[in-house]
Design a protein around this nucleic acid. Structure first.
Lengths: 156, 156
DNA sequence: CCTTGACCTTACCATGATAGGAAGGCCTAT
DNA sequence: ATAGGCCTTCCTATCATGGTAAGGTCAAGG
């Protein structure tokens, strides 16, 4: 099987297969006399493993660990579970982060009448110092820093 | 104010300020005789605007539009609201995507006993073809080594 | 045989936003 | 005048992926 077929069979693009090989994620494939890479079913299965792991958001670095465990018949499932849990935790963190952004934006958008008038709480918030939204405002302090004549910061 | 002070005052690193200038997001700053960039309070305010927009997940491309609206005193708040809503929608899509990953992983992890034994539904799923998961069910394993005659293209 | 077209090869460039470093110039206080 | 802290530009890297270009290979058909 050449790289194009392996790509179609695994769902990993030929481009990425070569990249994974170059980075050492997968071992170098065999070659025909002409230099074409050759793939066995076993190797395609490994590529599918990688593809599926990527689909679940695992970074390539972690996939390396997953592959090592996959190949290790004396692995401890606890190690696999730990990797999965770390990934779950990472996803959760990112979800929470984006959820917070979304809520802040939603609050701002809700407060914006969204018509022909220029007044807009969204821009007002963006243009002000630290986040006024998300929780009741506080630290509004000086929204302009001291106005020094120019250059250097000297005596603080 | 030089770039270091502007960075501290805006929360945008000096590195990024130069980058934003090089990409045209912000106009080129004035320079002292020695070539040092000089920033006014107005420019620092703009940098804070950018910083806050980034904190809300806006890509620089969108920030360019936001900045244009910010500067345009005859803007329509509807345009701002639309940008915000697009960003909200984008965040929602990404959140849903990651939520799906998380749930799939959680189901797999829940099915993994996570002890010293090698059997692991997580690896079994990753090693199988297309997603066997998707619903809240698994409780299966040892389903990974069936060699499928999937090759086509007779020219081998 | 020669052409055609689909496939393969390597190598380089680009993305987006950010950080790191090197090499050298500038500024100010001591 | 020298130290050391700041500035400058330029280069590199990230991470996973796609694109392009220039050239070799292979199978089929005229």
């Amino acid at each position: 099987m050449n790289i194009g077929e392996a790509a179609r069979a695994s769902g990993v693009s030929a481009k990425m297969i070569r990249y994974y090989e170059s980075t050492g994620l997968i071992p170098a494939a065999g070659r025909t006399g002409a230099g074409y890479r050759v793939y066995s079913d076993t190797e395609v299965q490994m590529l599918r493993f990688i593809r599926r792991s990527r689909d679940l958001g695992f970074p390539v670095e972690k996939i390396q660990e997953l592959l090592a465990l996959w190949r290790d018949r004396s692995r401890h499932s606890a190690d696999v579970k730990r990797l999965a849990q770390e990934q779950i935790d990472g996803l959760e963190r990112k979800i929470a982060e984006m959820q917070a952004m979304k809520e802040t934006l939603q609050n701002l958008a809700d407060a914006c009448c969204g018509d022909h008038r220029p007044d807009c709480p969204i821009l007002a918030d963006l243009g002000s110092g630290p986040s006024l939204m998300a929780r009741t405002d506080r630290a509004r302090s000086s929204d302009q820093q001291r106005s020094q004549p120019e250059q250097h910061r000297s005596t603080d």
